Amino acid sequence: MLLTHTRSQELEAIYSDHHGWLVNLLRRKLGNIDNANDLAQDTFARILTGRDKDVIREPRAYLTTIASRLTAQYFRRLALERAYLDALAGMPEETAPSPETRILIVEALTAVSRVLDALSPRVRDIFLLSQLDGLTYAEIASQFDMSVNAVQKSMIRAFQHCYAAVYAP
């Protein structure tokens, strides 16, 4: 992506004026300066690679929004990693996956989580009850006090969303 001279100057000014502030904000949320620096850099990288070409009128609000989303992703990844490692702890050592495989699995779980998080909460819950818990559409309909047809429509939306997330360019 080519930046215009004006856009480049604007982003440079935002970085120099607000980087320290953002790192301190993230350090308070994360409790760790190294992670705060990483997420601050990721925040500015998102701005650089973003499609939004408008002038950023409220830089701190804009940075806070992006950083908050990245922080949520960070904590979600930590929770997934912790849950996965807890599950591994119960396995016999000789059947446990290699460290490389563990990293790949955590990355895959994070990607799946991101896709599911983009669904509405109700559609996501219906999808998970069907796919993970094995409930029938009738059981889900009863649980949500809705028709089987409404459950089917929610499942169609979920499948379409997952298909687009995996196969769309």
Rank of each mutant, 00 (worst) to 15 (best):
M1I: 09
H5I: 04
T6H: 06
E10F: 00
S16F: 09
S16G: 05
H18P: 06
G31K: 11
I33Y: 09
A40W: 02
T43M: 04
V55P: 02
R57G: 07
E58D: 11
P59Y: 03
R60T: 10
T64E: 01
T64I: 02
T64H: 09
A67E: 00
S68A: 03
S68I: 00
L70T: 01
F75Y: 15
A79R: 15
R82Q: 14
A87G: 08
E94M: 09
S98I: 12
R102I: 15
R102W: 01
L104K: 11
E107K: 12
A108P: 00
A111R: 12
S113P: 04
V115R: 06
V115Q: 04
V123M: 02
R124T: 06
I126L: 07
I126R: 05
L128M: 12
L128P: 00
S130F: 07
S130N: 11
S130A: 08
S130D: 07
T136F: 06
Y137M: 15
E139P: 03
I140K: 06
I140T: 15
A141H: 01
Q143E: 13
S147D: 04
N149Q: 13
I156D: 05
R157P: 00
A158E: 05
H161E: 09
H161G: 09
H161K: 03
Y163F: 14
Y163R: 14
V166D: 00
V166H: 06
P169T: 15
P169I: 13
